[in-house]
Design a protein around this nucleic acid. Sequence first.
DNA 1: TATTGTTATACTCTATAACTATA
DNA 2: TATAGTTATAGAGTATAACAATA
Lengths: 174, 174
Amino acid sequence: MPAQRPSKAKPEIYLPPAPEGHFNPKVPGIDYGVLDGLIGYTVRRAQIVQYEHFVESLASWNITPPRFSALVIISRNPSLKLTELANVLGIARSGAVALINSLEDLGYVVRVPSPTDRRALGLELTPKGEQDLPAIIQAVVAQDQRVAQCLSPQEQQQLVSLLARVAGFQPPQL
Amino acid sequence: MPAQRPSKAKPEIYLPPAPEGHFNPKVPGIDYGVLDGLIGYTVRRAQIVQYEHFVESLASWNITPPRFSALVIISRNPSLKLTELANVLGIARSGAVALINSLEDLGYVVRVPSPTDRRALGLELTPKGEQDLPAIIQAVVAQDQRVAQCLSPQEQQQLVSLLARVAGFQPPQL
DNA sequence: TATTGTTATACTCTATAACTATA
DNA sequence: TATAGTTATAGAGTATAACAATA
């Protein structure tokens, strides 16, 4: 059996503190110089704004962006191994352990022993996870649309496509 | 006089560890479900890829994205106060202190007492900072272009414009 | 010998709160 | 009383390295 994790000392679920004020991507009177023209800095600015919106909108669910990504990946890929999840999310295995712990504390995910590999475990949604995920997804899609509503549907699709190419993969077919 | 910071115990300059492998924004065989269509997740994926490229390309300079942003902002806005820098970067003042400390350790920035407000201090580049910044900018622009070379100049401009609107500010005039 | 999940450790980064000096 | 910079503290997040169980 893999090493057991101890009974958690902290039942509280962490949620990042909401900053007093929002990030201002363009402070008046400040000269941003070369930053304004850099793809990287522009992506970063948009990502910060997105992140803040996400955390605020999902605060009542105690769901952060990494938790949401994990939930969706787990739900769409049954019996995913922890190592595979870490790979998909681009984090270390030790980080995935902490992430799964928080989702377990929320009652959304269980570790199921793999029938074929006694070292491994499959990640599955709990009944509560199955029940709540649709509403969570709806809330996330709604906030995503709220942020993107300044763009036409065509522009949104174009943005996704351009970003996908920058990230180095084929844009999704929509 | 503002409280003095103690002589630093660690002269070493931190640089984030290079991950063994690169982040794979689209792992084969994995169903990303709703994530593929979300602006937020797409922005995040691109941002991770960008960040990794940046850190690797600027490793020899010991320059991270936050350090670079701070250097550019300081160089373009003479006598910027620490609190203003924190506001521009969207971080707490305590974080700005640590950031400036690292840039001071690198020999790029100095704290200059403000002539008008004896509480405040102006941030300025050192001669070494003035001397090295152009090459650093050149390296950053080069890596930015390398990541973005899959897009035509027009597409790049479009991406910057779309991201600026999503972030909630007027796109820069190029 | 390699891999899986876990733990231990170390580090940055973030934030809040308290403190000193000055306004 | 408010603000500027600093420090202290605590939290999440990242990572690497080592470990036990299993392949």
